[in-house]
Design a protein around this nucleic acid. Structure first.
Length: 570
DNA sequence: GCCGTTTTCGGCCCGACTGTTTTCAGTCG
């Protein structure tokens, strides 16, 4: 939320890395990384918490970390950070991201061979000096070399959209593998994170080796990284480069335990295993054990049940309070894809979309929607062929005619009206008044008084929703310079909705902000911002992120049936 | 470094694989 939260999260994470390189106690390292993760997730402003003396109330923040936070907030510096990084060259920490290469080896290479960055590392591999170090050898070096290769071509995270496309194709292919029975995506993909590191698939079947071999013959395979009887790993060619896909085969009676384990998150799993331990049990990817005796493992539900927990949906398994809620039997009843009754943000070929209104409507019917809102750009957004007043009026007429003609679905006359650099809206109130649904957003002047402009838009009686409130693009840009706290307050006060833009590169608001909005009592709309009918399928990512933000059906405007939506918008 | 109705000290999730080792360390997920 606040800049300071992010800065501190970054600092603690770097301290963790630095201490790892220096061979510090692993528990201390874990403590720093945990603090980093929690700060990253925190919606409250750390400065505010510090002022109120509430730092120690944050789980994972004890005396030591609290003091360091205070020191940083007061002085802008942290002695521990400088200490931890001292004597560690700039390029060394980055090497921790390379597969098959860990802190011990990096440290060794640094001490013995003066390796300071990736370039040095490649050099000592080529000249053979790394292999000669104590405990090293040809094969280890060969694996590190492979790790570097993967790091260089595929280490960036994969957008959920791309990952899902790949995994669905691979799973479709795997259904024909000999003797395969159950198949599921696992990992952060199953948790619907906005980006994923790698693609994990879990399956059961009679002959693991045969299934893995079948897997390695997947048509788009670029290279086989590993192929055994329980695990296979391939690089798949995609439009955007090569991506790694892992397949694991487990026994039928371990499927639940393995699925739970490989879905993660790591933090969530550690909590579960701790709880199990307190009960004298042990959880592994093979099952739950009391001593030697296996007492669960076939289904995920069984694993949770043994800990007296209801099954927890994958999207919220992040150790962000879901276990506490589950213990109290107060898990949210998360919104589902089939709860969505319409798409409230679609562009037509009137502005920069590629589909006609009729095509969009037909497609919306196919998706089972009750309504659809056409929200094209307004006149000032020239690059998107924004509608002039005249063209908007023509569109209104077309929609009115279509509404008389078609059955089974309602078309809402909408607009995505720009909030101009001076804070005014791009159309007059007289015109906006004629529309069913008004979305306001910023496309011009990202750095110019964004907060004030949004606040004034939220004061306008004809605006319903603020679209993509932070303006971030996941793979491209940071987002507006905006004070979201103020925007949220204004939305609440004026009874406005905030958008979860489901376009895979936006996913804006993100899960953390969604949860905050929900807790404040602000309702959310999920819109795809589709520019062609194919883009309307982005709704599933929107719902995935909504679930990660703990949203329930009642928190989402477009879960309302048309009759009720109409009343709310009026 | 954090944490605690079993502990204010002594724990902190678990197992597999690999490669380098004569019994284990490093790395991964």
């Amino acid at each position: 939320m606040s800049e300071k939260n992010k800065e501190l999260a970054y600092i603690f994470s770097r301290i963790g890395d630095a201490l790892e390189l220096k061979g510090e106690s692993s528990f201390r390292i874990i403590a720093y990384r945990k603090a980093a993760r929690i700060l990253e997730d925190l919606t409250e402003d750390i400065e505010v918490l510090a002022e109120k003396g509430k730092l120690r109330e944050i789980p994972g923040v004890g005396e030591g970390i609290a003091k360091k936070i205070e020191e940083y907030l007061k002085t802008g510096k942290m002695k521990k950070y400088e200490e931890a990084l001292s004597g560690i060259p700039e390029g060394l920490l980055e090497l921790l991201e390379i597969q098959n290469l860990g802190a011990r080896t990096i440290h060794l290479a640094y001490k013995e061979l003066g390796v300071k960055d990736l370039q040095d590392l490649k050099r000592v591999i080529e000249d053979g000096s790394l292999a000669k170090l104590f405990g090293m050898g040809e094969k280890k070096v060969e694996n590190i070399k492979k790790g570097i290769e993967i790091y260089e071509q595929a280490h960036e995270r994969i957008p959920i959209y791309e990952a899902l496309t790949i995994v669905e194709d691979v799973i479709e292919y795997l259904k024909n593998a000999p003797g395969i029975s159950q198949i599921s995506p696992a990992g952060s993909l199953r948790r619907m994170k906005e980006t994923v590191g790698d693609i994990d698939i879990l399956a059961t079947g009679k002959n693991g080796r045969e299934i893995i071999e079948f897997f390695t013959r997947y048509p788009n395979v670029d290279r086989v990284l590993a192929s055994g009887k329980t695990k296979g790993s391939i690089m798949v060619k995609t439009e955007k480069g090569k991506k790694q896909v892992d397949l694991r085969i487990v026994e039928e009676n371990s499927y639940g335990a393995a699925l739970q384990y490989f879905t993660g998150s790591k933090a969530h799993n550690i909590r579960l295993r701790s709880m199990a331990k307190d009960k004298g049990l042990k959880i592994s990817e093979y099952g739950v054990f009391r001593g030697e005796e296996k007492i669960a493992g076939t289904t995920e539900e069984d694993i949770y049940k043994i800990l007296n927990l209801p099954w927890i949906p994958p999207e919220i398994r992040e150790d962000r309070g879901e276990i506490e809620s589950a213990l109290k039997n107060q898990l949210p009843d998360l919104v589902n894809y089939h709860d969505i009754k319409g798409d409230l943000h679609v562009h037509s070929n009137y502005s920069d979309g590629h589909s006609t209104i009729e095509e969009i409507v037909e497609h919306a019917k196919l998706l089972g929607y009750e309504y659809i809102a056409i929200c094209d750009h307004s006149q000032s957004v020239k690059y998107a062929h924004g509608l002039t007043e005249d063209r908007l009026k023509r569109q209104i007429e077309e929609i009115e005619k279509l509404n008389e003609k078609i059955t089974g679905i309602k078309i809402l006359k909408g607009i995505e009206v720009d909030i101009l650099p001076d804070g005014k809206l791009d159309f007059s109130n007289e015109l906006l008044k004629q529309l069913d649904y008004v979305v306001a957003s910023i496309h011009i002047g990202f750095k110019k008084n964004v907060t004030e402009r949004m606040l004034s838009a939220l004061e306008n009686p004809y605006v319903h929703t603020l679209a993509h409130p932070t303006g971030r693009l996941i793979s491209k840009r940071e987002g507006y310079d905006v004070n979201l706290d103020k925007v949220f307050e204004a939305a609440l006060k004026n009874n406005k909705f905030l958008e979860l833009n489901a376009y895979y590169d936006r996913l804006d608001l993100n899960e953390i902000n969604l949860r905050k909005a929900k807790e404040m009592g602000i309702k959310i709309t999920i819109g795809t911002d589709a520019h062609h009918i194919g883009g309307m399928r982005m709704m599933r990512f929107g719902v995935g992120i909504a679930r990660r933000g703990w949203l329930e059906k009642k928190d989402v405007l477009n879960c309302l049936p048309y009759s009720e939506l109409k009343k709310v918008l009026a």
